[in-house]
Design a protein around this nucleic acid. Structure first.
Lengths: 165, 165
DNA sequence: TTGAGATTGTTCGGGTACGAATAATATACA
DNA sequence: TGTATATTATTCGTACCCGAACAATCTCAA
């Protein structure tokens, strides 16, 4: 916290810089906090849970999606993980090198590639996932219990906008 | 949206995989949606506002922080932007190459480096920022007006946890 | 005043991250 | 049957992203 500016300081300063513009500060605060929260939470989880197993956030996410849906097409993994297929190609190569996942050509359609976990990958997730969830519980501890569902709902409303054609 | 699984489908599948574990699904939904929202919103803004000026999300963020606080130490810029100082070094080099910002050695302390915008950089922000905010307004349009402040507040509560020693 | 310890920005190595171009495969229609 | 069109995963080029190691600079006590 040391050295960082408060929300009030920032808003005062922004108003000063932008006094001649018409702006929606509430919308600004939402997106701003959304990114601060996402990157803060991500860094926290990477340091406290993932670093021990040498997994990046994205690698874990891909592993998780595969764990839930395997065997699953890479197209779906990319979509569910929120990354591009170009990025996924690299991450899958990493996971194959670490022997957590394998690629298989689809028998029905030669263009498609299916992803599955190795036994080693499944073992890892069995260990990692509960530890991960424990940290998630800690993270939301400052948000009142009765508001958490609403928070998840509002976040989904943000997602739904970007999914419109 | 095509091809992606719904929340209900995912939760059903996760429960099946994890029936023998004790998990907090609400905490899971919050972090999961937090990241989906952040990456969706980020990609949306990069495509609809930033791509025209050849700026990445992070480059814009750094430019924005500098615009508000200049002249400002790189240490503070990194903190406020939520990136590491190693990353900032690269981004600042990009911004200097594009002639949007400049580095200056601090006269008081030889270790410190101060960042300021060029006139070109300030002109860019004068144009870009209102366009950016317009998109932000669109993005929160699916979240009821009366809930937006609360959303921003809850996101700050998430941030506050990670800031504890 | 000198030297141990702290602070700061950069470099380095490895892993994401994206859009655009590409190659391989499948589909549709003539 | 063949050929245009569509869909898929990969490659390519460039930029971001971090922790760790590093060199430069400052601080402060002996």
């Amino acid at each position: 916290m040391t050295g960082s500016y408060t929300l009030v300081e920032t808003e005062a300063r922004v108003s000063h810089r932008l006094s001649h513009m018409t702006l929606d500060f509430e919308a600004m605060a939402v997106t701003h906090n959304l990114f601060r929260a996402a990157s803060a939470v991500r860094n926290h989880l990477e340091r406290n849970v993932l670093s021990e197993s040498g997994l990046s956030w994205t690698a874990f996410l891909v592993l998780w999606v595969t764990w839930i849906w395997e065997p699953v097409e890479t197209r779906v993994v990319a979509l569910e993980s929120g990354i591009s297929k170009a990025t996924l190609t690299g991450v899958l190569s990493t996971l194959e090198k670490l022997e957590y996942a394998v690629r298989t050509r689809s028998p029905d359609d030669g263009r498609r590639v299916l992803v599955t976990l190795t036994d080693k990958g499944r073992d890892l997730m069995e260990d990692l996932f509960p530890a991960f969830n424990l940290q998630e519980v800690d993270l939301v501890s400052h948000v009142p219990v009765e508001s958490r569902t609403e928070l998840a709902t509002m976040l989904r409303q943000l997602i739904s906008y970007t999914e419109e054609a």
